[in-house]
């Protein structure tokens, strides 16, 4: 074996292996070729075993040739490996393709009831103005529900609150959240900023805008210098927060025995925005709540001196607010609990 023979064998190994690499069908075949040619027991190692029979001066020359052969094969392997990898990845991606237009796996979605949600939203808004939430009993007495609110027995204003009575002595189902005013005043000292949400009851036939069970939110603010102008400013802010900024509001005289002066508070019709339409009775306005300055008789029943303290109260129906806000036409939907209606609020 001389140098020329060995060089020829090495060149044949290079040429044969590179041809085989070009024809390798997949990365596994490529791996086998690599082992056969360059592995510990591979062809290159076998050829170089013959190096011992060469004269010492030829040995480095064979080593140099063997290195170029190794480099050439490795480079051919790398090139082929990349191209085969791309093909195989493409095939795998094609295999894994799904119909992405199918709908997703549905997640259960619940909903929050619009009456309660409206009450919660009202509370959140007034809490920004320092109001704190209180609650008072639904089964009330005549004294707190009426008399302390300046509505004596047989007062004609009692027509405004047809009442359901129960078989507990001197108890009735509260007709409004206003008795909470008395309870808060008796329990707290000014400054008072209280919000009283809750369920109320009236002897009332059910129709699209009346129910015998409904919710109300009462507000009460009493201190030494609380004015009607403060009420007007606060309610205006409330309307903007609830119905969107830029809504016009209107403050006009109303009547409640427990406030003096009394107020009705309107917001511009959310349907027509002012010119008048059937939804607002062609007035351009929708009444959203009643309010007024707490009557001196009521302040006294609350244990406060009307010469020192003054304040306002307001009351609103969350269902009415919700109806205006969400375009709900019939109050009866609120207690019917048809899930197709409830799903509007998720």
């Amino acid at each position: 074996m001389n140098f020329a023979d060995l060089a020829r064998e090495l060149d044949a190994l290079r040429a044969g292996t590179i041809d085989a690499i070009a024809g390798a069908p997949d990365t596994a075949a490529l791996q086998a070729l690599e082992v056969d040619a360059l592995g510990k027991k591979g062809a290159l190692t076998a050829i170089l075993r013959g190096i011992g029979g060469l004269p010492p001066e030829d040995r480095p020359r064979v080593g140099a040739v063997a290195n170029t052969v190794r480099t050439a094969i490795e480079s051919a392997l790398a090139v082929r490996r990349t191209s085969l990898g791309d093909v195989e990845l493409a095939a795998r991606l094609a295999r894994e393709t799904v119909d992405v237009t199918l709908p997703g796996r549905p997640i259960r979605r619940g909903s929050l009831h619009p009456s309660i949600e409206a009450m919660t939203e009202i509370a959140r808004i007034f809490e920004q103005f320092g109001f704190v939430v209180h609650e008072s009993p639904e089964i009330e007495d005549d004294l707190t529900n009426f008399q302390m609110l300046n509505i004596p027995p047989d007062h004609p204003a009692r027509d405004l609150w047809d009442t359901l009575y129960v078989d507990v002595p001197d108890r009735l189902l509260r007709t409004h959240t206003s008795p909470g005013q008395i309870r808060v005043m008796q329990a707290m000292k000014p400054p008072i900023r209280a919000l009283l949400p809750g369920r109320c009851f009236r002897y009332e036939s059910v129709d699209a805008s009346h129910g015998f069970e409904f919710f109300q939110v009462e507000g009460l603010m009493v201190d030494e210098g609380t004015t009607l102008a403060d009420l007007k400013g606060l309610l205006d802010q409330f309307a903007q927060a609830m119905f969107g900024s830029g809504k016009r509001t209107r403050f006009r005289p109303g009547y409640y025995p427990f406030t003096e002066p009394s107020v009705a508070f309107d917001v511009e019709c959310l349907v027509c925005g002012g010119p008048g339409c059937p939804a607002c009775g062609r007035s351009g306005w929708m009444t959203i709540l009643g309010a007024g300055m707490v009557h001196p008789v009521v302040l006294q029943y609350g244990g406060l001196d009307p010469e020192r303290y003054q304040g306002f109260a307001f009351g609103m129906g969350p269902e009415r607010i919700s109806m205006l806000k969400h375009g709900i036409s019939d109050l009866r939907l609120f207690m019917e609990n048809d899930v197709r209606f409830l799903e509007s609020f998720r």
Binding site: M188, M221, T226, T227, K232
Partner: peptide
């Protein structure tokens, strides 16, 4: 007085009286 004057003439102000103490909301 307010009624005849017109409620539209009532100014719009925000309360400037002190806030009550914090209270945990029952809600």
């Amino acid at each position: 007085v307010a009624r005849v004057s017109g409620y539209d003439r009532i100014p719009t102000t925000l309360p400037s009286t002190p806030s009550p103490a914090f209270r945990v909301s029952p809600l």
